[in-house]
Simulated assay, not measured.
Amino acid sequence: MLPFALNKSSEDFFELAVTESLDREVRNSYDIMLYVTDRGTPPLTDNETISLTIQDVNDNAPTFPKSLYTIHLMENNEPGSLLASLTARDPDLHENQYLVYFIVEKEIANTSMSMLFSINPENGNLYALRTFDYEREKEFLFHIEARDSDTTLFSLDQYNGEIRTTRMFSYRDPRQQRLVIIARDNGDPPRSATVTIKISTVEQVVTRFTETTEVPIEYDLFTDLNLYLLIGLGSVLFLLLITILVIIVLKCQEPKPSQAAPQGRNSIISQRNSSTIADSTLISSDAYWYSLFLAETRKGKVVVRQPLPNGAGFIVSSIPGSAALTETSASRSSTLQESSSDLP
C-alpha cells in the first residue's frame, strides 16, 4: 500500500496527496501510475507514470559503532604517534553525512585534553601529542563527539547584523559561499531589503623565513621617541662643534714659545751701554756665531766673540756700531799707553 491518495480538488482537477510521513532512509523513490477512464461506451482509458524521488533532510544523528573504546598505548611513545582511527556513521546524504570530529574539552590535573591528544576533524584519526610515563599517568578518560554538517557555516545576529562562522571550514565545503541577507521591519505592511554577500575561502599561506630572508620594516620616522632622539643627537653635535671651535681659538691666541737654544748652548743676559744684549755660549760649532753675525750686522751692530778662560767655548756679544768704535779706540789708546809706558 503506497502512502499516497488521489483527491478531487474541483470538478475537473485531482491532487495527489501524501497520507503518511516519508523516510528517505527507508525508501528513497516511488513510481506512481495513474489511470484515467471516461464514462463512454465502451469506456476509454489512459495512464501516466509519475516518478517521485525523496529528498534528504538532516534528520539522523551520527553514531559510533561502540560507545566505549579502550586504547592501549606503550609508555615512552613518540609524540604525534597514531593511537586509533574512530569512524562514525550517518545515514543521511551529501553534506548531511559529512562528519566533523571533536575532543570534548576537559581538564585533568590542570591539563587540558587538547594539550595531550589531538583528533583529525575530518577522518577521526586520534594522535598523542606528547610522551606518556606509566608511573605518572596510567589512564585517561575523555569524550569524542562527531557532528554532521545541514549546521550551517554562518549565523546572523538578528539585532546587530553580525555574521559569524559556526564551525570550522572543511575541504568538502564549497570555495564560494553565497549569503542572501534580508532585513525586514515590523510595519504594516512590512517593508524589506535584500543584500547578497559572496564569500571566498582561501588557503592559509605560511611563509617560512630563513636567515637570508629580508623582511621590509615599515615604521614612522616622526614618532615622538624618534623626534626626541633627533633633538638630543643634534644638541650633542652642536656642543661638540662649539667646543672644537673654542679650542682652536685658544690655540691660535697662545703666544709662541721662544725658540729653544740648540743642544749644548746656554743663554746669558748682560748689560752693555744701557742696552740688553743677548749673549750665548757656543760649544759645538760656529753655526750660531755665523747666523748671529749676519743678523746683527744687518741691524748696524758689531758682533764680538771672546774665548772663555777655561777654553770651554766663546762668549758672543753684539753691541751698537758707535759703541764698538768707541770701545775699539779706547782699547787702542790704552794699548798705546801701555806700550809707551813699557819704553825705557
Rank of each mutant, 00 (worst) to 15 (best):
S284R: 14
M1S: 14
R27F: 00
E254C: 03
Q253G: 00
A261T: 15
R178Q: 09
R172I: 07
T297N: 12
S329I: 12
S85V: 05
P307G: 11
H143E: 15
R332L: 10
R272D: 00
I50Y: 05
E122Q: 07
L241V: 14
Q55K: 09
P62Y: 04
R208V: 15
Q177H: 15
I269E: 06
D38N: 15
D38P: 10
S291D: 14
T223H: 04
I181R: 02
S341Q: 10
N47I: 01
N310M: 01
Q263R: 12
Q97P: 00
V302L: 06
S267R: 07
I319K: 01
Y98P: 00
L44G: 13
L52V: 15
T53F: 09
L129E: 14
N226V: 00
P309H: 06
T37V: 14
E105P: 13
S9F: 09
L229H: 02
S118F: 09
D92N: 04
S21Q: 06
G264C: 07
T281S: 06
A61S: 10
T326N: 04
E95A: 07
E139F: 13
S331D: 04
I199W: 03
R39W: 10
Y290C: 05
R298G: 11
N273G: 05
Y30P: 03
D59V: 05
D188P: 00
